[in-house]
């Protein structure tokens, strides 16, 4: 039996909003450690990895590891039926072919129950080494979202370059060009507004903005986003997931293969 209860059901709604347009079908791997998912988009250019730790749930029971393959747009449609303040409980019997979602409104007697069909998916998992990166940037997630959205007006790709204590996002296209330069901020008055840059070596890499704009759909999950870059390897864009108390619940990480000048 698998059962996971989340008082702040809105977190699960936000996670689905952040992945459903990138991957259509994926499997949740549920173990005593928590729930995780890894899936590539159909073109194999990007990958999303989600982790929700067992102790972040308000109740978590997983007698034996289960893989819950599902259509994410179906799950997302069902989650739209849950209110933002609802408690969400996921339940799956060990050998069932569906998952049950129970939504409970706060301070009300209303409970709704939905079922989503499970699928057997041939998931391909990639082993991603945990290596240090040349550049790590932490910045406000809304700023990253804005930059990606603005630069997609100009061109299809963004060139990210980092030198000393600044990071530069540049795009060019038929209408002209645009650049956004961000410098490291000194003050830590409002940590969520800060830009911090840690650089081992200067870097310049290009990435498709279409995917970065998909990744930015995770913005409501976290006030800060972390970008990790090294020469000629995929970019990592990470949003940490915290609950209302600020406790670490897990993360959503996106990997994006670079565009390389041949």
């Amino acid at each position: 039996m698998f059962e996971a209860k989340l008082i702040q059901g809105a977190i699960l709604k936000k996670i689905l909003d952040a992945i459903k347009d990138l991957v259509n079908e994926a499997s949740w791997d549920c173990s005593s450690q928590g729930m995780s998912l890894q899936a590539m988009d159909t073109s194999h250019v990007s990958l999303v990895a989600v982790q929700m730790k067992a102790d972040g749930f308000d109740k978590y029971r997983c007698d034996r590891s289960v893989t819950l393959g599902m259509n994410l747009s179906s799950l997302s449609k069902i989650l739209k039926c849950a209110g933002n303040d609802d408690t969400i409980t996921l339940k799956a019997p060990d050998d069932g072919d569906k998952i049950t979602l129970v939504f409970e409104a706060k301070n009300e007697s209303e409970t709704s129950e939905y079922e989503v069909k499970l699928m057997n998916l041939d998931s391909e998992y990639l082993g991603i080494p945990d290596t240090p990166y040349s550049v790590n940037v932490k910045m406000p997630s809304h700023k990253f979202q804005r930059i990606c959205r603005d630069l997609q007006q100009i061109g299809d790709a963004v060139t990210i370059s980092c030198a000393k204590d600044s990071i530069r996002f540049a795009a060019k296209g038929d209408l002209g060009s645009g650049t956004v330069n961000l410098c490291q901020t000194a003050s830590a008055d409002k940590p969520e507004d800060s830009v911090s840059i840690s650089m081992q070596e200067p870097i310049i890499q290009s990435f498709a903005l279409k995917y970065l704009n998909h990744f930015a759909k995770a913005t409501p999950l976290s006030p800060q986003v972390s970008l990790s870059l090294s020469p000629d390897v995929p970019l990592v864009v990470e949003y940490s997931i915290t609950d209302d108390d600020g406790s670490d619940f897990g993360y959503i990480r996106y990997y994006l293969a670079p565009k390389i000048d041949e």
Partner: peptide, 14 residues
């Protein structure tokens, strides 16, 4: 020419 790479050329399957 600028070429879009794919992830399996960087990471192996597990």
């Amino acid at each position: 020419d600028i070429e879009q790479r794919i992830l399996p050329s960087f990471y192996s399957s597990k």
